[in-house]
Amino acid sequence: MKTKSNIERILESGQLVVTSECGPPRGADAEVIKKKGKLLQGVVDAVNVTDNQTSVVRMSSLSACLILKEMGFDPILQMVCRDRNRIAIQSDILGAAALGINNILCLTGDHQKFGDHPKAKNVFDMDSIQMIHTVKTMRDEGKFLGGEEIKGKPILFIGAAENPFADPFEIRAARLGKKAKAGVQFLQTQCIYNMARFEKWMEMVRDRGLHERVGILAGVTPFKSVGMARYMKNSVPGMDVPDEMIERLKGVAKEKQSEEGIRICVETIQKLKQIPGVRGIHIMAIEWEEKVREIAEAAGLLPRPELA
């Protein structure tokens, strides 16, 4: 099933895909999203819109997607299993497709313990692999999970995330294999700092031929400071920041650390571009969207291909 997704079209053309993300605000002000959007115009092919990231309540992903869509973006609707059961998930999938959203990213979701409402009840009616399968069933078979026919199939390009740095490492490629089997078409990875481990993971992915079935976009996040690097290393679950990176940032003066962070990020992208099977770059500059253009430019990712 062909979608209108920019990611799908650029993957097909064989060019590198560039995506970034936009975190919705903790309020109802649409201007915040528009401002972030402006910083990304002409820099990315599609933009992720996070879904109550780190379990902190924010403007809904779908609403922020629509705001970005109206600015000319091809948004990627992130959807987590934490907050919705299969009824709500399928309903939101239909709603997104009706609003012209072309991409969905199926995620497990962080545990609510990390957010601003740790006392919430979580849902996890399905997991991310089952969500991928749900979207595929709705789109390709035109059926709800309950078996009833859908009038007006949701035509969405299906994505997922994978963390090559989480454990158990040996099943991380197998897990992507399950996602591919379920119907995933593109994949964005967790931020890559430990290149050796990422290359090992890619090798396992290639051994299974998964790089040919799934468009893999390698994730990067620039460090603003050594403090941020330390925080990510010690406090963000599943993040692998090697000590050399911390040392390198520590080695420069405080006011130069953000520049060094950008430099590391650009070097990382250049290395990633050389790895067989990497089909794109996902730049997550968390609350630092103004730097995405500079990073993309320096890494030779601009201009982005014109799509008819």
Binding site: C81, R82, T108, G109, D110, H111, K113, N122, F124, D127, S128, I129, Q130, A161, E162, N163, A166, D167, P168, I171, A174, R175, K178, Q190, P237, G238
Partner: peptide, 21 residues
């Protein structure tokens, strides 16, 4: 599993421990 996942570990599994604790 803190998220009752049926198809494998989430991205927060680290050194045998759960992201929750």
């Amino acid at each position: 599993c803190a998220k009752s996942l049926l198809n494998g570990p989430c991205g927060g599994s680290s050194n045998g421990k759960c992201e929750v604790d």
